[in-house]
Every structure is written in C-alpha cells, then in structure tokens.
C-alpha cells in the first residue's frame, strides 16, 4: 500500500536551518561518518532492489534479452514494436477508459463525503472517517473474491436486486460490455477511503473565517461553494485526479484474479498486459520497454504534480 504518509508539518521548523547553517560554518559536513552509517541500510537496499533493477530494465529494453539465450542489441526496436502494437495501445486506451470510470466517481464520492463529514460533529464524523477507510485495508484478492459472488450470474445479489425492478440476469464478468465497469466498482470501493480522507483534509484546511465573512456578506451555500470551496480545493482535485489516473492505469490484481483479462481481452489493463508478457514471453525486452514507457509518462506526470502541490502548500502555509 503506497498510501499513508505525510506528517502535519509541510514547513521545516524555522530553527532547523539556522542551526545546521551555523554548524556547517564551523564544520562542513561534520556528520558525514555517522550519517553514512545510518543511511547505509536504506541506500544499499534501494540500490540493490530499486535503482539497479531500474537501470538494468533500461539496458534490457535495448536488447532481445531472455533467461535462456544470449541477448542481442536491437536499438529502439522494442520501443517501436510497443508503440506500433495494436494490442498494447488497445490496453492503454482501455486503461484510460477504466480510469474515466473510476476517477470521476472517486472524486464525486470523496467530495460529497468530505462536505458531509465537515457538517457533522464529533462522534458521527469519527465513525464516518473510520468506516470509509476500512475497504482500503482489505486486500485486492479478497475484494475480488467478494465482488465475484456479488456479480454471480445465478444467485448473485446484484442480479437478484435488479430482478426486483424487473431486469433480466446479466453475466457481469462474462460479457465484454459489462466486465470493465464490473471491475471498476471494486477499484472505486478500495480507493474511495483514501481519496475521501485527503479531500477532507483539504476541506478542513480552508480557514473558517472565509465562510464567516461570506455569510456576513449574505452569500448562500451555493455561492460559498463556487467562490470559496471549489477554487481553494483546486490543488486537491488536481492531485487526486492525477494520482487516480496513475493508480487506475496500474491496476493489476483485481483483473488478474477476477477475469484474467477476459472476456475477449475486455479487462486487459496495461499492467496486466505487461505482466502476462513477463510471465509468458521468452524475451523480456518488449514488455520491459512497454513498462518503461508507461513509467516515463506516469512517473513524470506524478512527479510534476507532486512538486506543484507541495510548492503551493508551502506558499500558503
């Protein structure tokens, strides 16, 4: 879970910089020895299990690499193959479509939730905050198992509920038209807690005085929403939008467990496409090139947004 983080302080205590400045004038890099000992486990582990694999992946992407044969330099061939592969491009488009279902739903849920919690006091607000986060700690495997029985064609609760309003049974996971929306629901379910709590934190950051002044000026609920809440939460929306898109495009376990990409590839999202090539292909250059291309786009977009949101926070705070 790459979710919970970020302490309340976005700005360093003012004293910190002065002290380290004063010290460095006396004894520049004076702590190097002890610092390197403290950093050693972190740096060594990151080097072996993250940085080296990344560099190696970049290297392999220019070769026809396999576990069993000697590899051959092929230049940009792997990248060209990826970008001209209809199946890969289709999976990316499918991923975008999937994100277009998941992200707006999450934003709406989170925004409604945040405003609702803000309007409640103490105990009820606490109950809501804790409850909405419970799905986020459930594994994607268990979520897949639960939603599989909910979607069951015969005797599933969803078809039963819909039969009450006169709809015929649907094989939710068995039809190309419904399978992707059907796996979007658990994605929303798992992700809504985090999005909601971030949204709530952003909403509570807005100084209450703004609303009070607006009330004195006779602004109603709608005017406050349009002129105070929405503009001040622009960054939060942007942040959730981008991380939501990145997260959706990397969604892997639920389609892997629930549908394994089917029926007829209708739930083969980009990461599942790459994962299947990893486990099935003889040569690794092609899927690695595909993964790196995705990484390049997603990683740089999230890095930019991350910077943007942080810098504005610092200015505000």
């Amino acid at each position: 879970m790459t979710t919970t983080a970020g302490a309340a302080t976005s700005v360093a205590a003012p004293g910190t910089r002065e002290v380290s400045g004063a010290r460095s004038r006396r004894r520049r890099h004076g702590d190097t020895k002890v610092a390197f000992v403290m950093l050693a486990p972190l740096v060594v582990l990151l080097a072996i299990f993250v940085i080296w694999p990344l560099l190696h992946a970049v290297y392999i992407s220019f070769f026809t690499w396999s576990f069993y044969a000697s590899s051959e330099f092929v230049g940009l061939d792997n990248y060209v193959n990826v970008l001209t592969d209809q199946a890969f491009l289709a999976s990316v488009l499918r991923g975008l479509g999937f994100a277009a279902m998941v992200v707006p739903a999450q934003l709406v849920i989170a925004f409604a939730f945040a405003n609702l919690v803000k309007s409640f006091s103490g105990r009820m607000a606490g109950l809501l905050k804790v409850t909405i986060y419970v799905p986020a700690v459930i594994s994607e495997v268990i979520a897949s198992i639960i939603f599989t029985i909910i979607y069951a064609y015969r005797g599933g609760i969803l078809n039963w509920a819909l039969s009450l309003v006169g709809r015929d049974d649907t094989a939710w996971l068995g039809e190309t038209g419904t399978a992707l929306p059907a796996i979007a629901v658990p994605a929303i379910w798992i992700g809504m807690g985090i999005a909601s709590l971030i949204m709530l934190a952003g909403l509570l950051d807005i100084p209450e005085a703004y609303y009070e002044v607006a009330s004195l000026d006779g602004a109603g609920w709608w005017a406050k929403m349009v002129h105070i809440t929405l503009p001040l939460m622009k960054n939060i929306f942007l942040y959730l939008l981008v991380t939501g898109f990145a997260g959706s495009l990397q969604f892997l376990v639920v389609p892997l467990v629930m549908t394994n990409g089917g029926p007829l590839e209708s739930t083969t999202l980009p990461n599942l496409f790459i994962f299947r090539h990893f486990t099935n292909d003889l040569y690794a250059g092609y899927p690695i090139a595909a993964a790196l291309l995705l990484f390049l786009v997603l990683g740089s977009v999230s890095a930019v947004i991350f910077r943007l949101v942080r810098s504005e926070k610092a200015v505000d705070g």
Binding site: V43, F49, I51, L54, H56, N271, F275, I288, A291, F295
Partner: peptide
C-alpha cells in the same frame, strides 16, 4: 533526490529485473 525518485518508480517497471536480482 535519489531516495525521492524511487517513490515514483512503479512496481511493474522493475518487476522483472527485481526478479532477476
């Protein structure tokens, strides 16, 4: 910068090479 950068590396990009390691 190196430590921060690792935050943005998606698992899938290094899955196979981590497996090799």
């Amino acid at each position: 910068v190196v430590v921060i950068t690792t935050m943005f590396i998606p698992g899938i990009a290094i899955m196979l090479t981590s497996f090799i390691v």
